[in-house]
Simulated scan of single mutants.
Amino acid sequence: MAEQQQMQIGEVAERTSLSLRTIRHYEEVGLVIPSARSKGGFRLYTEADVERLLVIRRMKPLDFSLDEMRDLLEITDRLAADQPPVGEELALLRERLDAYREATEVRCGKLRGQLLAAEDFAATLRARLGA
């Protein structure tokens, strides 16, 4: 198996558009754990770590709490495990995942409504400037 490319935190921050401080915070609260450390003690991340951070970043504007993020990541980790769940455990995980999907759709709808209101306000300001 080929060795995975490892990145330092600065490259990960650039790729995810997250600050170093935010990435370190997510590590402190257990949402992401660097895959390795260099001999000098620097955090090293893999592509899978970057993908995990991107999931977290996408959840943030939808106002998911850290606990909800942690729960969702645990669900997806379990579903993607080398020995995936079966039977009742699989059904329960899929049910929980579907609840997050539903919550996401509701929250996206709310954001779309807020965006429409903001665009309407911007149009009102443009019209007043033109008057």
Rank of each mutant, 00 (worst) to 15 (best):
G41Q: 02
G30W: 00
L129K: 06
E105I: 05
K110G: 05
R107M: 11
A48R: 14
E51Q: 14
D67G: 12
I23Y: 06
V106E: 14
A117D: 10
S17C: 12
R107W: 03
E11L: 05
V86S: 13
Y26G: 00
A131R: 13
Q6V: 11
K110Y: 12
G10A: 14
T46W: 06
A123F: 04
L18H: 09
L93S: 09
H25I: 03
M59R: 01
T16N: 10
V50H: 03
L20M: 10
S38A: 07
E14F: 06
L53I: 08
D49Q: 05
E119K: 12
I9G: 09
L97E: 09
L53Y: 07
R58Y: 01
E28Y: 05
R37G: 04
Q83D: 13
R43I: 09
V50P: 01
E51G: 05
Q83T: 13
L79D: 02
R101N: 12
Q6T: 14
V55E: 00
A122I: 15
T104R: 13
T46H: 04
R21D: 10
P84E: 07
Q8I: 12
A48V: 09
Y100S: 03
D82C: 04
A123W: 04
A99H: 06
A13P: 01
L125A: 07
G87V: 10
M69D: 00
L18M: 15
I75E: 03
I75Y: 04
G113M: 01
G130R: 13
V29R: 10
R101L: 10
C108E: 10
L54Y: 07
E88H: 09
A103D: 10
D120W: 01
G30L: 05
L20G: 12
E68P: 01
L92R: 15
V106N: 03
E89Y: 02
E119S: 06
Y45Q: 02
A118L: 12
K39A: 15
R21E: 11
K60E: 08
R70M: 11
P84N: 01
G40A: 11
